[in-house]
Computed example of a mutant assay.
Amino acid sequence: MTAPWSLLVVSTPVGTLGSGAGGGVELTLESLVAGLLGRGHQLTVLAAEGSRLSSSCQAARLWTAAGVDQPSWQHQLRDAPVQIPAAGLLPAIWQQVHARQGQFDAVLNLAYDWLPFWLTPLLRTPLFHLVSMGSVATVMDEVIEAVALSDLRRLAFHSRAQASDFRLPAPPLVVGNGFDLSAYSFRERPDPEPLLGWAGRIAPEKGLEDAAAVAASLGERLLVWGVREDPTYAAAVEASVPSGTIEWRGFLPTSALQAELGRCRLLLNTPKWNEAFGNVVVEAMACGVPVVAYARGGPGELIVPGVTGVLVPPDDVAALTLAARGAAGLERSACRRWVERHASREAFAERIETWIQEGLRPA
């Protein structure tokens, strides 16, 4: 089937688009939709009621479904069963997909949930999955691996580290991610402000306490951006360091985030789990901000040690502190150049198009 296509992009059932509740999936969806629109495809987005599309995606149709948000697999036990709340958003979304699939050449799922993966062989319209997390639950591993055994072309991953979590029958397709680089301004800033940055959902698996400990040890302020998903955890982190160490900046749209992030001398990235990609790492580098991170998951594939940042052993706060202290000599323009070469929205959309093109060919 030749392009252009009519594509249905299915968002996460964890929250509304624009709220930040969907984490990196929201940014991925925006980049993917805008990039594919730019390549001439017709896009429809299906998301939670109350969602809104950014200005770059206004040419896409927006369909919505109502229901109770789906619990995220990030916060379930490894042996937890599949859980769908009464009047759940997840089945409401996929009922719409089932009913309206005939209008599309392909469906692209961005949700990390059991139901859409299980439905893959049952839909008439080809269903593709951009897998947004690594291994977090046995039942999710099983359903993703079942799709891979049936037709690995239906799956794409953000990083090699993420894909390695799963037993796959052949090497995976790794598509990375993409960003609208015009939304991230870069200034050389020979003397950036003595600020450290940290961005992400405020939840234990993101490791904010380690970044706070580094900031306290260096006597620098830590600007923190993101949704306070776990207020109790956020309060405990703040109480663990001297008053004034953390400056809570909230969840900001890209325009505001990049303006503040660009002031920082470094971004600290401290995941306690296998991050699938690491959007905030690329966002920082797009602003010319080097990144000091744990060598875990996707960020370990994004940072060029000694050029765009420093990687240290996972969970080693002393090494993280030492790296943050000694990273002043990194060239900020090198960070921006790396992003321009590897993570533009246009390049990402081209990789997604190639993936779907291959998957639409007869097996």
Results as ranks from 00 to 15, higher is better:
Arg124Asp: 09
Arg61Leu: 08
Arg52Glu: 10
Asp69Ile: 08
Pro116Ile: 01
Pro204Cys: 09
Val292Leu: 05
Ser159Thr: 05
Gly197Ser: 13
Leu127Ser: 01
Glu247Asn: 07
Lys272Glu: 14
Trp338Thr: 12
Ala86Lys: 14
Ala334Pro: 02
Glu205Ser: 04
Ala328Asp: 05
Glu188Asn: 03
Leu152Ala: 14
Ser164Asp: 11
Glu193Asp: 05
Ser164Ala: 10
Leu37His: 10
Ile246Glu: 04
Val131Leu: 06
Phe117Asp: 09
Leu196Tyr: 03
Gly15Gln: 11
Ser217Leu: 12
His129Ala: 12
Ser19Ile: 10
Ser217Cys: 14
Phe104Thr: 07
Gly197Cys: 06
Gly35Cys: 07
Asp113Thr: 06
Asp316Ile: 00
Met285Pro: 10
Val292Arg: 08
Arg154Phe: 01
Leu108Glu: 08
Arg325Ser: 11
Ala87Leu: 07
His41Met: 11
Phe128Arg: 03
Pro305His: 09
Glu283Met: 06
Ala213Pro: 00
Thr245Ser: 10
Arg341His: 13
Tyr233Val: 07
Val25Cys: 08
Pro171Cys: 01
Tyr294Thr: 07
Phe117Lys: 00
Thr254Ser: 14
Val312Trp: 02
Ala86Phe: 10
Leu7Arg: 03
Arg263Leu: 14
Ala235Thr: 14
Asp69Cys: 11
Ser72Met: 08
Leu29Thr: 13
Gly359Phe: 02
Ala236Gly: 07
Val237Phe: 11
Thr44His: 07
Ala343Met: 12
His98Asn: 15
Asp315Cys: 04
Ser19Lys: 11
Ser255Trp: 12
Pro172Glu: 02
Val9Met: 12
Cys335Phe: 03
Ala212Ile: 00
Pro242Lys: 10
Ser11Glu: 08
Gly40Lys: 11
Leu155Met: 03
Ala215Leu: 00
Ser333Gly: 15
Asn177Tyr: 10
Ala295Trp: 02
Arg189Pro: 01
Arg189Val: 04
Leu330His: 12
Leu8Ile: 02
Leu29Lys: 07
Pro172Ile: 02
Val224Leu: 05
Ala327Glu: 04
Glu238Thr: 15
Ile246Leu: 15
Ala92Leu: 05
Leu222Pro: 03
Thr270Met: 09
Trp5Met: 07
Cys335His: 10
Ala99His: 13
Leu252Trp: 08
Val136Asn: 14
Gly50Thr: 03
Arg189Lys: 09
Glu283Leu: 03
Ser72Thr: 15
Arg332Ile: 05
Pro85Gly: 11
Trp338Glu: 15
Pro91Met: 04
Val68Asn: 05
Gln258His: 07
Ala349Phe: 11
Ala80Lys: 09
Ala276Cys: 13
Leu266Lys: 08
Cys57Trp: 00
